[in-house]
Write a protein that binds this DNA or RNA. Structure first.
Length: 239
DNA sequence: GCCACCGGTGGC
DNA sequence: GCCACCGGTGGC
């Protein structure tokens, strides 16, 4: 099997096309009377695509739940266009991908395979950080019937031990792995731990701001709709 | 006061 | 270099 077939891609929709702004919630909010609750339960990811193992075209996945299901087993069961029949009966490997109008507001990240589906009723939420920060994103788990956001495996363990009603929920159902942004400069490089200049006592020079770097439209096209053998198909993080 | 977001840092 | 963990804090 060609390794690139295992790539999962998350299509990130950013609000505010030319400024360094925090991501806004766009389209996955669920109906609620509380704006605050709506925000808290929303992902900053609005679209999901997966590459067909046969034709290498990228297909949109209609729901986060379906995407999580495919991601969980994509190593053992690579995605193929035929699977899209469930929601798009007309999709075959011969059908061209849906085009995304590139208005400069889309961002891409390569997701990790084999992330388990969250336990029933739990939400796994990926929140993007602002460009130029020290990290790209954070993963949170939200238990059913609770607004508590769990940030680490330790917090999940503690929560489960304090809530024995979650019978059958195990730590193997949680993963805090995050996707990798396609834009190499999205995350600020960390300074070397001993890079300060202690002899002079001077503060480290501020790092020049990294210009906003958008994926050029042609690169986006290649990433999304790469022809077979496209050199722009990225290699997976692990082999 | 709460919490979403962020940076720092230790471990690998 | 990457990742997990967690404390700080600004905005609400």
């Amino acid at each position: 099997m060609i390794s690139s077939l295992l790539i999962l891609t998350v299509l990130l929709k950013m609000e505010g096309s030319l400024s360094n702004v925090a991501p806004e919630i766009k389209s996955v909010t669920r109906p609620t009377s509380s704006p605050k609750a709506s925000k808290r339960l929303s992902d900053s990811i609005t679209n999901f695509t997966v590459q067909c193992a046969n034709c290498l075209k990228w297909r949109f996945i209609p729901t986060k739940e379906k995407y999580e299901q495919i991601r969980e087993t994509i190593v053992e069961q690579p995605f193929v266009c035929k699977m899209a029949h469930e929601w798009r009966p007309e999709i075959t490997c011969d059908v061209e991908p849906d085009l995304v109008k590139d208005d400069g507001s889309w961002r891409w990240a390569i997701d990790k395979p084999s992330i388990p589906k969250p336990p029933p009723g739990w939400q796994r939420i990926l929140r993007l950080r602002a460009e130029g920060g020290t990290k790209f994103s954070d993963v949170y788990y939200v238990p059913p019937s609770s607004g508590k956001w769990l940030r680490t495996t330790r917090e999940v363990e503690r929560y489960l031990s304090e809530h024995p009603e979650y019978i059958g929920v195990t730590m193997s159902q949680f993963s805090f792995r995050t996707p990798v942004p396609s834009e190499k400069n999205y995350v600020r490089k960390r300074l070397a731990r001993s890079s300060a200049s202690p002899d002079t006592g001077e503060a480290a020079m501020p790092v020049a701001a990294i210009p906003i770097s958008w994926i050029a439209p042609d690169q986006i096209e290649d990433l999304q709709f790469g022809e077979e053998g496209s050199s722009h198909v990225e290699a997976p993080a692990e082999s």
